[in-house]
Nucleic acid binder design. Structure first.
Lengths: 223, 223
DNA sequence: TGCGTTAGTGAAACTTGTTCTAGATAAACG
DNA sequence: CGTTTATCTAGAACAAGTTTCACTAACGCA
């Protein structure tokens, strides 16, 4: 039939064919065990190659070979290199979220808690700078065809920050804006660090600076 | 001799050869008239192609052809596609800076002035969304080999913001931090808009939100 | 002005992301 | 089971960024 992809996303410039039999689930279709295993192997190879040499070191042929899968299959699972790396990031973020949940920030003030959390994440990234490079570059380079996946990453990041603020539920619109700006700063500061234009100390200052925005926002709905 | 480039920057993974005769200026070496003209033609073609179809539409062979220059020459002037697009951005930013100088923001408060200025710039970008796409994607995708050029862009942006704040000279360290965060937000918000994950209204809110940081910083040295 | 050096040209080659094709396998299903 | 259909494989083919090479043109200077 009409070449249905595993991933719910379509490719770059292809227009929707619209041909979709009724029972196809728009969300992630469930995979067989072997398929789940393949997917996992691919993500693992991707992360391994990335932590060696960053974005450039993740070569699709090599990922395919290392995960024991044909090139065509790799592309069926992840329709582009950027998709693959963004998915890798999703994966890593999930780990980080769980880790952070286990040891919530110790600071009192929300702003300080967020800053502490982000600095923890930052230190984790510093341990694998190449991996960080691959993931963050992919994330900011992603075009519209990757929007759903990038959005997922964004939601995960937002959740982490809201957790740190101590209000996973019922944030005000104002607070959400602040969180969005914090996220912007986080990504962009990482970029400047990764490309050697800002020091670790600099990133720390930027994070702390932007976190001051939190103090400006309503403490809660019911101020 | 040892292949000296026009551009002061070296290529991707090459290490400095260190062989540099004393009289070579580290800054932009001066070009002859014909060379200056070539450079200009190249940047012009680049911008034209970019405004057609964004990052992907800027193809090195086509840029070379359109500017009447051999491919090898193009690479001598701009050692990679990203270098070329970042230089294009420098060029555009310079224009914008001049334009903004002529009509400074009308608002009273520094924060509002900066927000107004950035929204003006944003509207200019909206007129050429593809061009914006090419430039911003190149900027955030740039690796270490492009750091000097990206830094120039960053300095230009900083200058624009400081101008809007009304203190081109003697900003405090705190104020510089705020400006840096504003710049982060600016770039990242543009990215989310360009990739269709945020609306124009959303970008406006983010800009206004981050500009509130300015109110938090010392009004001047001599508070 | 002549000459050695640097810059520019044209074309081919190389690299890596992406696509395509034909055939082998596995899954689903009657 | 046997058949039909979706996946997977191997490998070629294609596209665009980048490099290389052999050669010519332009420049700078003694």
């Amino acid at each position: 039939m009409h070449d249905v992809r595993l991933s719910p996303t379509r490719r770059r410039n292809t227009f929707e064919v619209g041909q979709m039999t009724a029972e196809v689930k728009p969300a992630a279709l469930q995979l067989t065990e072997r398929q789940e295993a393949r997917r996992r192997r691919i993500l693992h190879s991707s992360a391994r190659l990335a932590s060696r040499g960053g974005f450039d070191a993740v070569q699709m042929r090599e990922v395919a070979e290392n995960s024991g899968v044909a090139l065509g299959t790799l592309y069926r699972y992840f329709p582009s290199k950027v998709h693959l790396l963004v998915a890798t990031m999703q994966d890593q973020l999930q780990h980080m979220h769980e880790t952070l949940r286990k040891r919530p920030p110790t600071e009192e003030e929300p702003a300080a808690r967020v800053a502490q959390t982000l600095m923890r994440a930052f230190r984790a990234l510093q341990r694998e700078p190449h991996l960080a490079d691959a993931m963050v570059r992919a994330l900011t380079f992603a075009d519209r065809s990757v929007s759903p996946e990038v959005d997922t990453v964004s939601r995960l990041t937002t959740a982490i920050i809201l957790d740190a603020m101590g209000l996973a539920e019922a944030p005000t619109a104002e607070q959400l804006s602040a969180v969005r700006v914090i996220e912007h700063t986080w990504h962009s500061a990482l970029i400047t660090w990764l490309s050697g234009r800002a020091s670790i100390a600099q990133v720390k200052i930027d994070i702390e600076t932007v976190c001051r925005l939190i103090d400006l926002t309503a403490p809660a709905p019911g101020r």
